[in-house]
Amino acid sequence: MGVLSSNREIAVSLSFILFGSVIFYSIYSIDVVEGINALYTSTYIIPNYVTAVLFDWRGFDTLGECFILINSVLVAGMVFGKGLFNRGFLKELYRDKKTCEDMDLGFTPIIKVLAIPMSIVLMLLGIVVILGGHITPGGGFQGGSLIAAAYVLAIISFGIRKCPINFSHKFLETLESFGALTFLILGLLGMAISGYYLFNVGEIYGMNPFPSPLSIAQNGSLNVGIIPYLNMAVGLKVLAGLSTITTLLISERIIFKNIKD
């Protein structure tokens, strides 16, 4: 056994070194070709060029990335017993447990007092980051993660039952579905108007879809199209998705509820 495992370790380390050196060699000798990026960096759509790439040039990729998150949340829910064909395994695991245990790490009052103002500030910052995603650094993903982080902070310091900021599971699910559907339907709107999915609609019957104040105009262009709405949709979805995963991981209540029905 000892010989076998040491042989195995040698094989693993050899292949690791070989493969690692291949990766490093190819990364080391990168000679970057500008290609299409020349167009991305020279065409003005909105002040935040990163958001322009994410939501205008390559909007469909962002839709797919959202769905990776939605899908992970769905599968994480399944691991905790939601929508299984057979719950025998989970029932077996939780047969002896009478009550569900919620995590309470027993933090001191100092942390508890500081956590709530901090998480409120973080949530507000998250909202600002989402709403200003098209003009300042940030966007839906970043803002949504900030809000979810604030929620996680509150839950960790108080425990899920006593937490003053409490989103119900159903509410989070609704929020996530709403965000995702908004993104998909805004794409369809572009299709109805121009014939192309996720077309950045500049005007709907002569109206600017997202009127902005004149003072932030750059290059004389004010029209940001539907990008802020897409940002909001992604923000809602990300904050709901990450919060759902947190509530799943921190409490056994979900499993108990799922086993019962």
Partner: peptide, 28 residues
């Protein structure tokens, strides 16, 4: 090719989820 990667990831997670759906220990 990047769009392909994004949907490749979705397909991966989906397949794992469909296996978990049978709910046995080995499936997990």
């Amino acid at each position: 090719i990047f769009n392909l990667y994004v949907f490749y990831e979705i397909a991966t997670i989906t397949q794992a989820g469909l296996v978990i759906a049978s709910g046995t220990e080995n499936a997990y």
